[in-house]
Amino acid sequence: MKIFLAGASGAIGSQLTTALVARGHEVVGTTRSAAKADALRALGAEPVVFDALDPESVADAVAKADPEVIVHQLTALSGPTDFRRAKQMAAATDRLRTVGTDHLLAAARAVGVRKVVAQSNAMWMERIGGPVVDENGRIEPNPPADAGETVAALRHVETAVTGITWAEGIALRYGAFYGPGTGVELAPDAGMAGQIRQRKFPIVGGGAGVWSLVHIVDAVSATVAAIERGKRGIYHVADDDPAPVGEWLPELAHVLGAKPPRRLPAWLVRMLAGEAPVNLMTQARGISSEKAKRELGWTLRYPSWRKGFIEGLG
């Protein structure tokens, strides 16, 4: 198929480009930076530099590509992850998930795209019920005020994409990525791994929030399966071992050769960083990916982060 991959130079986009080209698909890959065009070309994609927040830029790029499928992997989640920059990246990503999504869908409809696959994530599943939820679960309707825009943006991309009637619309709720290119890897001082090595990524409160993780190679293979075989709706994409932060974070620090993470009381983190990080560390719920395995024929290389941390961070 001819696939328009928005966000082809990102953490998942670059590896997804390679995987799609290897399977015989023709990929038109977008980037915000002209400097990254040659790298995309080297991966086998036709590079396009565009601004996802400019409707004319998006419409022109999609019209010229005339794809059968659009894959929306646009985020601004890259570079250093200090708190101030994290807030800026989150705000920019929110815009890409609202305004950017709307522009992509309008352009897709205009050229007769038959499938749209978009990135969501599972960090803000509703905070009720047990520790693990399937696709019947919904995005948290009452998030902390300082997470309101981010959660609304996730809800928007899911509702907008799965609600289209003129094509198959699929939203992928990914678990937290780890592995090469994600910042959670062995590369020196890479993203979150750098924070863990510097003991700047603490366990908050009891660390009871349950996170689902997914190695980047498994996230890529699930996305390929959704592009090729997915049906309208939502699929969860994570490994089979959701676990509390207080369990997996010390293991990750150990594999990275770091000292154990600090433990900070929730009241202190709430005062310094807000309610959202406290909520994620203490109340998050994991996800089940049984639907993706059953309906897409998806198999995991790393069914558990326990093995993935040891074998898959390099």
Rank of each mutant, 00 (worst) to 15 (best):
K2G: 07
F4C: 12
G7P: 07
G10W: 13
I12N: 01
L16D: 07
R32W: 03
A37V: 01
D38W: 01
D38P: 01
R41F: 03
L43D: 04
G44C: 03
G44I: 09
F50Y: 05
V58R: 09
D60H: 02
V69N: 00
L77A: 07
S78I: 04
P80I: 04
F83E: 11
F83Y: 12
A86G: 06
Q88M: 00
M89S: 08
M89R: 04
A90N: 00
A90W: 09
L96M: 13
R97V: 09
T98L: 12
V99H: 05
T101L: 13
D102S: 15
L105Q: 00
V113P: 05
V117D: 00
A118F: 08
E126Q: 15
G130T: 10
P131R: 02
N136C: 03
A147D: 00
T150A: 11
A152F: 04
T162D: 08
W166D: 02
W166F: 06
A167P: 03
E168Q: 00
E168L: 06
L172D: 02
A176Y: 12
Y178S: 09
Y178F: 14
P180M: 03
G183R: 01
E185F: 05
E185P: 03
L186H: 03
L186W: 07
P188T: 05
G191M: 15
Q195M: 03
R197E: 11
P202N: 05
V217G: 07
V220P: 12
V224F: 08
A225E: 07
E228V: 08
G230C: 14
D240M: 13
D241N: 11
P242T: 09
A243I: 01
G246R: 08
G246T: 09
E247N: 09
P250D: 02
P250Q: 03
P260V: 06
A266C: 13
L268W: 01
L300E: 06
Y302N: 14
P303N: 15
E311I: 11
E311P: 13
L313M: 15
